[in-house]
Computed example of a mutant assay.
Amino acid sequence: MEKSMMLNVRVSPSVKQQAEDVLKQLGIPMATAIDMYLRQITLTGGIPFSLSLPKAPAALNADTMTDDQLHAALQVGIKEIQNGDTVDAASAFAQFREQHR
């Protein structure tokens, strides 16, 4: 089918780059991925994936902690830093992504 419409979209440069990196690994051009997304909206009659806020485990959710629980958790973190029990951000995020595939 011939493509005859142009679509201009403003997105965050970092989001675009991250998406391009993934799409490149899949061998899918950005235009094809956008076309696929729009087709899925048409086929499903809506957004083709679930939309929800991520759920933080209660043990990590400061909104559900008492002041004493939050203070205790922060003290544990401070002790870990003082003991040198830390991981650089890049490694931590890589580990997180690996665990949550």
Rank of each mutant, 00 (worst) to 15 (best):
F49W: 13
F49H: 13
S50I: 05
S50L: 06
S50Q: 09
L51T: 09
L51W: 04
L51D: 04
L51Y: 07
S52R: 10
S52A: 11
L53S: 12
L53E: 10
L53G: 11
P54Q: 01
P54I: 01
K55F: 03
K55V: 05
K55M: 00
K55H: 05
A56L: 09
A56P: 01
P57E: 02
P57D: 06
P57Y: 04
P57T: 01
A59R: 05
A59N: 07
A59P: 02
L60D: 05
L60P: 02
L60Y: 09
N61Y: 04
A62E: 02
A62D: 01
D63C: 00
T64F: 09
T64R: 09
T64D: 11
M65P: 00
M65S: 00
M65W: 04
M65A: 01
T66V: 03
T66E: 00
D67V: 09
D67N: 10
D67I: 08
D67R: 12
D67H: 12
D68Q: 08
D68P: 01
Q69H: 09
Q69F: 07
L70F: 13
L70Q: 08
A72H: 11
A72E: 10
A72N: 11
A73V: 04
A73E: 06
A73R: 08
L74C: 14
Q75V: 06
V76Q: 06
V76F: 02
I78V: 11
I78M: 10
K79H: 10
I81R: 15
I81N: 13
Q82K: 09
N83M: 07
N83H: 12
G84L: 10
D85P: 02
D85T: 12
D88C: 14
D88P: 14
D88W: 13
D88Q: 14
A89F: 15
A89Q: 14
A89D: 14
A89H: 15
A90V: 14
A90W: 13
A92K: 07
A92G: 03
A92D: 03
F93K: 12
F93T: 10
F93I: 13
A94D: 15
Q95W: 03
F96E: 04
F96V: 03
F96A: 06
R97I: 05
